[in-house]
Simulated assay, not measured.
Amino acid sequence: MKTEKITKEEASIIQNSLDNLCSDNGLRRKEARKSLVEIGSSSIPLVMDLLDSPKHIFRWEALKVIAEIGSPESIPILLEALVDESGDFRWIASEGLVRIGKSTVKPLLKLILDKHDSVFVLNGAHHIFSELSTKKLLPDNFPTEEMLDQLKVSGNPSKLKVLVHKTLEVLKISE
């Protein structure tokens, strides 16, 4: 993951914020999250370590920071969270992917191909594409209505896979 170089002051703020992100105090965690989001993508590699925490709340806070930063570099992390067993993780991930915008489209389409049998992925993709459409952040040639329809109807995975392949090809040509 490419990151920005951080200053000593930012490193100190990040370390303090990471300590507070692991606090039992909700207000401390909220302030820590806010500080880490303000620092931006340079805090992501350090926050990522918390994604492996055995404590749900620490994982939740780390994912929330990553999603709120909204860096395209975090797309793989957020896509992975779309298949998490926890519904709130999947929601945070989908909101983060919406925040990132157009850069989300191709990786999400590729995830659909890999996990076309996952209700979590299909529901998340439906939400993400719907929100990106509302915000006019989908590519002009994106088959929005057809894609949303196919994501709702999980009964015909081969039709969905054909549509995703076709869409990826069209997006590749239009670059």
Rank of each mutant, 00 (worst) to 15 (best):
R33H: 13
E68F: 03
V37D: 12
F89L: 03
K64P: 01
I77L: 14
W60T: 09
P76Y: 01
M48F: 07
D84A: 10
K64F: 05
E68W: 02
I77Y: 05
K64T: 14
G40S: 01
A32E: 04
L50W: 07
S86F: 02
E80K: 15
S94A: 05
L46D: 03
K55N: 13
G26T: 11
E61S: 10
W60R: 14
S43C: 03
F89H: 09
S74Q: 06
L63I: 00
E38F: 06
G70E: 08
D52P: 12
A93R: 01
D52H: 11
I77A: 11
S74D: 01
G87L: 08
S53D: 13
E68A: 01
L50R: 12
I92V: 03
M48A: 12
S41F: 05
L63E: 00
K30N: 12
S53Q: 08
K64M: 11
I69K: 09
K30A: 10
D52M: 14
G26H: 09
S71Q: 07
V65S: 03
G87H: 04
S41I: 08
G26D: 14
R59F: 01
L46Q: 12
S86E: 15
F89W: 08
D24L: 09
D88N: 14
S42F: 05
D24G: 09
K55A: 15
L79Y: 00
S42P: 08
R33K: 15
V47C: 04
S43V: 00
L36H: 04
S86Y: 09
L79P: 04
D24W: 06
F58K: 14
P76H: 02
R90Y: 04
S41V: 07
M48D: 12
A93Q: 02
D84F: 02
L27W: 13
I75K: 12
G40H: 05
P72D: 07
G26K: 13
P76D: 00
L27P: 02
K55F: 12
I77N: 08
L36I: 02
L63K: 04
V65Q: 06
W91M: 13
L36G: 06
L78W: 11
K64R: 15
I44L: 06
F58I: 10
L78D: 02
D24K: 07
L79F: 02
V98R: 07
L46Y: 13
A32D: 07
S41C: 10
S94N: 02
G87C: 09
R29N: 02
E73L: 15
S35T: 10
R33T: 15
L46P: 04
A67Y: 05
S53C: 09
A67W: 10
D24I: 04
E95Q: 14
E73F: 13
S41P: 03
R33Y: 10
P54V: 07
E68T: 00
L78F: 12
V98C: 08
S42R: 12
A32P: 06
A62D: 08
D84W: 00
L97Q: 03
